[in-house]
Nucleic acid binder design. Structure first.
Lengths: 343, 343
DNA sequence: CCACGCATAGGGAACGTTCCCATACTATTT
DNA sequence: AAATAGTATGGGAACGTTCCCTATGCGTGG
């Protein structure tokens, strides 16, 4: 015994009218007599009638759904961005389909395929650390589906991008390390295929250059964001004859892992080595010592990206804009770079 | 100039065949000649053909989508559960629509409405702290759409439920406080409309009873999970003539807030007051002192809930089961209840 | 009294797919 | 050689909605 869904045809039959009239009444079309409208609305309510958005999507060729592809949910950054996205989307009557690439290229391609098959009206993407080919996103452009990158962007595509000023943020963090008197400053760099990896490294180099500190290649370790590699890198740094007295990490999870290693080896933070991260994860204010970091305007990133997407969706393909929106970062100084700890 | 979507009809026309044959070739139906199949598959690939899942959903009356409604994403618990859900869903060829109620009843009702309109094939729910009426979920039962509650459940509905043994977990935490010698143990309780609020309170009472410690009503403060209320409650406790020497909090964020207040007033943890939480948030191992807490099997909750939902979806409405799956918790002892801190 | 305008209502195509049924053709069996 | 079985193919309904087009009925002005 199949469950029958109530449709406008059912309502029409019961009221001896046509599905056209019922449709008009339900969508608030003016040309329908008040009595009939009331009868239809009442019956619809009584029967728990729910418009079938699937059918509507088919005929309108528009799903009122946007997709979001992010690398992962394990840190606080992306869930918080998604929160902001969902808020704006639902204000505009849109649903959100979220998927995670798990930092894996193949999964990302599959995610994109699912988004396409589900006919999202627009897509927000922050790419995985493995992604270097963008064919799976270019399909969207060809099909006329707007795309907006945020945080981790694709440079070779002409679409709106929301990023923070990673280079300047990194510069600020390293400058701060220099200003508190550190000389040998190491950098745990992120994947260099990610633009943010390059930019944060460049910020590091900018600061070193500005203060005439020679860059020691040995002090720059490119990591892939996995715990074992971070551990090895930090151990290698601290094993040096002249270990670093300052450390700027690609992001907070990396910095926190570095803190763990450094502490377990008996070094004092920040006196032996001062450490700074990037992204101001929720957890960063809680670690011991609390982590100096570069904060990103998470809500604003989500809002800007979603708004940019909706703007794009309103426009015809021929009028698509490709502005890159660079948001400001803020250096947050905490105990991992402050020697006089207040209670 | 509208963007035209490639359909099976386009492919059929180009190859002088019918849409039926194209459909068969694309779905892997056996009765199609090898040459024709190859020609169709090749052309489909060449044209970037993407099956329209919307049309498919309409004809199959099945969307291959499940919905998830959670209270919020601001802590790590729900995002991690959602990760597990998505993993299993995508393994089964299902997409996931996620929405947050923001702990607000009205938003939850709206979320449920959207899920219904999008015709999800099943729904996973953890209710908001305000929810006491369940009409918006009962509609799903009436429409034959399976529903599974997890973590924060609805007792009055006969559907599968995945919970942890909150009562026993709370008991373990409080027993631990008693065993390390604490006598005046306070409880920062959660909303009593939530079953987990009641159960954790009961676990607290169980432990007190077992060890013949009289319960002082003044030591039980019901909170609503907002920071100001937690602060006030903790301050009130510490202002008492005889302040508590142990504290069991409804969840980790509450416990962490309590740690902040207690520390800022100059009390020593755990010597003056030992503190335990519930849920083992990611952040809890990083706070100073690290927090003793009751861990929930996050992945398992997500997996069990999703599997239960898929089981239910396979069955006819008349054969729906309503088993409640109670998962075990684990007490994790950290420095907030350990006086001899190792380096 | 008839033509006309206007308001309301109904019929039916369209959206893109699947799947049942019918048809045409080929191969097998008696 | 004819009947039969089987195979590949095409036609068309169905899913639930919107919206264009047409029909009906009514009142009004010439």
């Amino acid at each position: 015994m199949k469950h029958h869904q109530i449709t406008i045809v059912d309502i029409a039959k019961q009221l001896n009218t046509s599905k056209s009239t019922v449709s008009r009444a339900l969508t608030g079309h003016p040309k329908v007599s008040p009595e009939k409208r009331k009868a239809i609305l009442d019956l619809a309510h009584k029967l728990d009638y729910q418009k079938n958005l699937i059918a509507l999507s088919l005929v309108k060729r528009k799903t009122n759904t946007i997709g979001v592809i992010v690398p992962e949910f394990s840190n606080s950054f992306f869930p918080h961005v998604v929160m902001a996205v969902q808020k704006i989307a639902s204000q505009n009557g849109y649903s959100v389909i979220i998927s995670q690439s798990d930092e894996c290229y193949e999964t990302e391609v599959e995610n994109a395929r699912v988004m396409l098959a589900n006919h999202v009206d627009g897509l927000l993407v922050s790419i995985s650390k493995q992604t270097t080919d963008f064919e799976h996103f270019k399909v969207f452009e060809r099909k006329g589906i707007p795309l907006v990158f945020f945080n981790r962007i694709c440079n070779e595509m002409q679409v709106p991008k929301i990023i923070v000023d990673d280079r300047h943020g990194a510069f600020q963090a390293v400058e701060h390390l220099i200003k508190i008197g550190k000389k040998r400053i190491a950098h745990l760099a992120g994947p260099q295929c990610l633009l943010i990896g390059q930019n944060r490294m460049n910020g590091y180099l900018d600061a070193m250059k500005k203060y005439d500190i020679p860059v020691d290649e040995e002090l720059i370790k490119v990591c892939d964001l996995t715990v074992p590699v971070i551990k090895d890198s930090v151990n290698a740094l601290m094993d040096m004859k002249q270990p670093p007295d300052g450390l700027f990490a690609f992001n907070d999870p990396t910095a926190i892992e570095a803190i763990r290693v450094v502490k377990s080896r008996g070094f004092k933070i920040p006196d032996d080595i001062a450490i700074a991260g990037f992204s101001n994860e929720y957890v960063s204010s809680f670690v011991e010592p609390s982590l100096t970091t570069v904060a990103q305007p998470i809500d604003e990133i989500g809002r800007c990206a979603t708004n940019a997407l909706f703007e794009q969706m309103k426009r015809d393909v021929s009028e698509w804009k490709a502005v890159t929106n660079v948001l400001n970062t803020e250096l947050i100084i905490r105990n991992s770079t402050l020697s006089d700890i207040k209670p």
